[in-house]
């Protein structure tokens, strides 16, 4: 059907009254996503209104979950408070927490990751990510579940899974697929930070187990070794065709390329090493970012 969320998932928004959170809560409602609650400490009892829709606002995530049955969350709170917001979602037993916030200190995420160690109930996507979209069946994929900031209308319901560290590069891949008539099961932006929640590999495993996902596009970039780890697993275990692209072949070493995690340090994390790992694992490597969809579709 999809991974992480179905179109009928009940979603709450942490930071719904901020301008960024409000704008994207509205866009999610317009997309047909079940936005059932907002959380802003001190504004409990108020309502977030958009068109006909009145979304109740709660002081705590625990309250919001209890009153509305929400199982997933989108976090838009400022970076200084984001680690706390993630762990509040974990404490409330949310199944999926999508942290959009950019600029969270690495030390905060190290602590979050440690606190979530061994927790099998909650999954974290992000931070510094565009979020998760499971397209719906309506026009321009209306009726899907959109958690985050991705444009909903570029999607189309179908059978390709997309996972990427970059936002706009995800949109590029999705749009290429949609223009060629190939829909998506779920699209996941895992974010550009050095200490993320779910990794490429975590998402690939879910796609591999999802009967409705028939092929996968994996987009990586310089920095770290998450792409190599995913490639190694794919080589041994993945039942489905995977195509990929690595951004940053022309990036100079030692410079942070926009994303906090996009940096070649100590000669590690180069595009060349990641592309070699992809090739060794039988992953189709797109020669340019314009060829991501075609590379996968040729393999299917």
């Amino acid at each position: 059907m999809s991974i992480l969320v179905n179109p009928d998932a009940k979603v709450l928004v942490q930071g719904i009254t901020g301008s960024f959170g409000a704008k994207h809560a509205q866009l999610s409602i317009d997309y047909g996503t079940q936005v059932v609650a907002g959380v802003t400490p001190g504004k409990g009892g108020q309502f977030f209104e958009h068109g006909e829709k009145k979304v109740p606002v709660f002081d705590t995530v625990a309250d919001a979950v209890k009153q509305t049955g929400a199982t997933a969350s989108a976090i838009f709170v400022p970076a200084a408070f984001a680690a706390d917001a993630v762990l509040e979602g974990v404490d409330a037993g949310l199944e999926l927490i999508v942290c959009i916030t950019e600029g969270i200190p690495a030390r905060d995420m190290i602590r979050v990751k440690r606190a979530m160690q061994g927790n099998t109930r909650s999954r974290l996507v992000g931070p510094n990510c565009p979020g998760v979209v499971t397209p719906g069946e309506g026009k321009d994929s209306y009726g899907g579940c959109r958690i985050g900031i991705a444009p909903g209308y570029i999607h189309k319901k179908g059978h390709i899974g997309v996972v990427s560290r970059s936002g706009t590069l995800t949109y590029e891949a999705v749009w290429q697929l949609t223009c060629r008539g190939a829909g998506q099961s779920t699209c996941v932006g895992i974010g550009g930070d050095p200490v993320p929640g779910m990794s490429h590999l975590d998402i690939i495993k879910l796609f591999n187990d999802d009967p409705d996902t028939h092929g996968i596009i994996m987009i990586g970039e310089i920095g770290g070794s998450a792409e190599e780890e995913a490639a190694e697993w794919i080589k041994q275990n993945c039942q489905k065709p995977v195509a990929g692209f690595i951004a940053g072949a022309t990036a100079p070493p030692g410079r942070r390329m926009g994303h906090a995690g996009a940096i070649i340090s100590g000669g590690k994390g180069t595009a060349a090493a990641k592309i070699a790992a992809f090739k060794a694992a039988g992953i189709g490597v797109a020669a340019t970012p314009s060829d991501m969809a075609d590379t996968l579709l040729k393999m299917m």
Binding site: S164, R165, S166, G167, T168, L169, T170, E172, G192, I219, E221, I222, F245, A247, G248, A249, T250, A251, M257, G258, H259, A262, A271, T288, P289
Partner: peptide, 10 residues
């Protein structure tokens, strides 16, 4: 976007 910016250079 950072990823698209890198990809454009590439």
């Amino acid at each position: 976007g950072a990823g698209l910016a890198m990809a454009t250079m590439d």
